[in-house]
Deep mutational scan, measured.
Amino acid sequence: HNLTITQGKLFFHYNPKLCLSEIHKMEEVSGTKGRQERNDIALKTNGDQASCENELLKFSYIRTSFDKILLRWEPYWPPDFRDLLGFMLFYKEAPYQNVTEFDGQDACGSNSWTVVDIDPPLRSNDPKSQNHPGWLMRGLKPWTQYAIFVKTLVTFSDERRTYGAKSDIIYVQTDATNPSVPLDPISVSNSSSQIILKWKPPSDPNGNITHYLVFWERQAEDSELFELDYCLKGLKLPSRTWSPPFESEDSQKHNQSEYEDSAGECCSCPKTDSQILKELEESSFRKTFEDYLHNVVFVPRKTSSGTGAEDPRPSRKRRSLGDVGNVTVAVPTVAAFPNTSSTSVPTSPEEHRPFEKVVNKESLVISGLRHFTGYRIELQACNQDTPEERCSVAAYVSARTMPEAKADDIVGPVTHEIFENNVVHLMWQEPKEPNGLIVLYEVSYRRYGDEELHLCVSRKHFALERGCRLRGLSPGNYSVRIRATSLAGNGSWTEPTYFYVTDYLDVPSNIA
């Protein structure tokens, strides 16, 4: 807008934040220059609390790290170098490059900038070799853009010569660093050979998330399962459950009422301010606690030095998902009996873990797994792929695949051998790939016309006998059925096997 004052003059007093240069501009645009008398524009009460600059400061050096910015700028000295009290560095987070010096300023003089007072450097006698002032900004957020400017702080001049310097606002972004852990990993099994893994992005990506790394490792069953005799009275049979499938998407929606109208769909109840505040506090606490764990609990591995020492970490090797089922080394339970199943799973520490690289999504279907087997899954978020990966501390989750139908069934015939004193040795093959492992066998036998009897055969007993022995049988026709019990439950009964026990007292003698 054009402003013209045809008559009258300007009068400025007691404006401590208004620089004289701005008042002189007002004289020019209003056409009143030359009308004012000496005392109409006070030299001592206008701009006496402001830094009124008329020179431009330029930054000469900028260096960044993930949490620091090192700045240096060209030296500046007023005509009387004693008038320079120091520099004021202003900075704040700036997602967009549209910041002005006066953003967030209120009537009390406060604003949204963080201000650092910096002492002037030592003055050199040689004007050509003056030290460049600077400042190291610490405690910054990774991968965050900051708006920065600097200006001088000078003393009051009796001659009211307006001098000083100020830089333009520059924008500097800190470097990326390792992201925080992925949030809320959930693993479920939808079949006997697959596990579905879902997660949420890290709360602090500290860069642009480029991919996720998912490692999985087959877990050995508890050692007590191999040692305890679950045929003993009072000892509860062990059981394991597989990871249940995901709930429906509708039930997972946030901010939804727990109660549904019987007449149909209901609208979600909005969260109160107290609920939102509580969630923010919980989120802040979780982030602080995660940072504490990362800094205190997890110790970084030592990389190899120039002395030739090897990095103890196993090298990563990509495998196809079809090879995942046989990740671990199978060892027989008892070496003397080769027909026992290889369900003991000690994992070799030198073995390469299978892994998958996930790009542009937060889910993965891990296939080719062994049925009813526990897996430990390790999830890392990465925001750099080359020249070397920059990934987060791992988040861990466990899951067990679903049982395989008929995996616990005894394959092959049940054979028998009759000894003296009416002892019958029953023999059968253990299931080759049971659900988890076989903890015991149930032997059901009966003599024709009598009630059915049951015998429990422990895992250890089966390994020693290759089956079991029935003792003290009365003469007669017998039928026997056997079924295995694994961590997933009972298998199917075998087809009945028949044998006849004679009275050993009636056996004919070869003595003449």
Rank of each mutant, 00 (worst) to 15 (best):
H425L: 11
I418N: 13
G489C: 08
V480Q: 05
L225E: 05
Y448K: 12
V443S: 00
V393P: 14
G325A: 11
V443L: 09
L228E: 15
D503V: 10
P387T: 15
Y292T: 03
S367L: 10
F419V: 07
N339G: 08
L453E: 15
S367C: 14
E389S: 06
Q219S: 09
A399P: 06
T343Q: 09
T401M: 01
L426M: 08
S284H: 07
R481A: 10
A335R: 13
E350G: 09
T241W: 15
P300K: 11
C231I: 02
S248F: 14
K460P: 13
Y375Q: 02
K432W: 10
A395L: 09
E265L: 11
R318K: 12
F289T: 03
R390P: 11
E442T: 12
N295G: 05
P431Y: 09
T272G: 09
S305P: 11
E404P: 11
L225Y: 05
T347E: 11
Y259F: 13
D408N: 15
V334E: 07
S262K: 05
N360M: 08
Y375T: 06
D273Y: 14
W428L: 03
R471S: 07
L280R: 09
I276L: 06
P475E: 06
P205M: 08
A463N: 13
E388V: 05
N360C: 15
P496R: 14
Y500G: 06
L280V: 11
A263F: 05
S367W: 12
S315Q: 10
C269S: 03
Y448I: 13
S251G: 13
H371M: 03
K357N: 07
S284P: 02
S223W: 12
P245K: 06
L277D: 03
G308S: 13
D222H: 15
T328Y: 10
I366A: 04
R400Y: 04
M427K: 10
V365E: 04
P245F: 13
H352I: 05
A395D: 09
L364S: 09
P312G: 13
E417N: 05
S268A: 00
E378P: 00
R447C: 08
L487E: 03
R481S: 13
R370K: 13
A335N: 11
S223I: 09
F462S: 05
A336I: 10
K357L: 15
S458T: 07
T485M: 05
K460D: 06
F215S: 10
L453R: 04
S486E: 01
G467P: 02
T401S: 06
P496F: 14
N295L: 03
G368V: 06
F462I: 04
T494V: 11
E356P: 07
A399W: 02
S262I: 13
S274L: 07
E495L: 06
C267S: 04
G472K: 14
S243H: 13
V439D: 01
L473K: 02
K317R: 08
E389M: 15
C456P: 08
R286N: 03
D385H: 13
T307H: 01
Y448M: 15
G264C: 04
S509Y: 13
S479K: 05
A395F: 03
A488L: 13
P354Y: 15
Y478P: 02
V414L: 07
F226T: 04
L487V: 07
T340F: 11
C456G: 07
E404N: 12
F372R: 04
L440A: 07
N422V: 02
Y375W: 07
F355L: 11
S274H: 10
S257L: 07
P205C: 02
V327M: 09
A395H: 14
F289S: 01
V297D: 04
D409I: 10
Y500D: 06
S257D: 07
E279K: 02
I410P: 07
A399E: 07
A484V: 06
